[in-house]
């Protein structure tokens, strides 16, 4: 399968945190979610991939051939934005358009105006402009999204785009992802990070799970849903089921967690309820398992 990015052993050393080695793939033509708790290293990884932060070692291969993020032809193909303070706070829609137009070769003013209208942000060509600092967090994020989507790119990389958005705006964001992917069928990809996948489930094709600076699981969502099962059971049989489960929480009334699908038959004999997990349930299970391992 074609890859938008192949991450080959990237590491980053800080005084108090180490990322990697990260080996992962961002498939081309799909939306990939980078899922992990706060402090898992999602932002560091995204920043490295977009040339915002330097890496200590390793390499990333973009679009099957390019490896130098300082190459402008690569930077132009990637549409990146962070969630907090992406632009100086005294900037307006107009300043953003002026700056973006020079900062990238593919910024389209007309499209920016159209997206601003769609996101109800105002008119970037209007005389009277509102400074970013006067906007709510949600509208700031919408502004960043309008700016990055106004560029004709092949890969969107968004750091926590949904966290400050209200439910309606999240729905719109999911629509924007699908529209972006569909506009050039199979040639465009999306990578976004989130610590809460619940509202983004139906816009996620591929998932990469991170904890403590490491990738702990990755794959296409449909495949992961076949690999893992969601298990519920009565507290009475918890002791018997626990060794077969990957993550486990419970009390004397009931327990739940995820397990590998290959253990489904065995767990069924203990009279447990077995279901296909949602991506949200899967995330909780996988991340909880990582926490349990870290505590050991």
């Amino acid at each position: 399968m074609k890859k938008a990015i192949e991450i080959k052993g990237i590491t980053k050393e800080y005084k108090d945190f180490t990322l990697g080695e990260v080996h992962a793939e961002i498939p081309c033509g799909f939306a990939t979610a980078l899922i992990g708790a706060n402090g898992a290293g999602k932002t560091t990884l995204i920043d490295i991939l977009c040339g915002v932060t330097g890496k200590t070692s390793g390499e990333a291969e973009y679009f099957g051939s390019m490896t130098d993020i300082d190459d402008d032809s690569l930077r132009n193909r990637i549409g990146y934005c962070s969630s907090a303070n992406f632009f100086p706070m005294d900037w307006t829609l107009k300043t953003i358009a002026n700056s973006m137009e020079l900062g990238f070769d593919n910024f389209d003013r007309a499209r920016f105006a159209e997206l601003c209208k769609r996101f109800k942000l105002g008119d970037p060509a209007a005389k009277k402009q509102k400074k970013l600092m006067k906007l709510s967090d949600g509208n700031k994020m919408r502004t960043y999204l309008a700016a990055v989507l106004a560029r004709d790119t092949e890969l969107l990389v968004l750091d926590e785009p949904a966290s400050s958005l209200d439910p309606l705006a999240r729905d719109l964001l999911c629509d924007m992802f699908r529209e972006y992917l569909s506009e050039r069928d199979g040639e465009r990809s999306v990578l976004f990070s989130t610590h809460n996948i619940a509202d983004m489930e139906f816009a996620t094709d591929h998932a990469i799970f991170m904890a403590h600076g490491q990738v702990i699981e990755q794959g296409f969502v449909e495949d992961l849903k076949q690999k893992y099962i969601l298990v519920h059971g009565d507290g009475m049989i918890a002791d018997k089921a626990k060794p077969l489960m990957l993550s486990f929480t419970g009390n004397k009334t009931s327990f739940e967690g995820i397990a590998l699908a290959e253990n489904a038959e065995m767990l069924r004999t203990y009279d447990t309820a077995i279901e296909t997990p949602t991506l949200q349930q899967l995330s909780v299970g996988i991340l909880r398992k990582a926490e349990e391992n870290a505590e050991k």
Binding site: F30, D175, R178, E179, L181, G186, D205, F220
Partner: peptide, 19 residues
């Protein structure tokens, strides 16, 4: 319909229509 077009219309993931 194209995989991504159908996903867009149905408001679901691309991988689901693909499957």
């Amino acid at each position: 319909p194209s995989i991504r077009g159908l996903a867009q219309d149905l408001k679901i993931s691309v991988i689901t229509t693909m499957k």
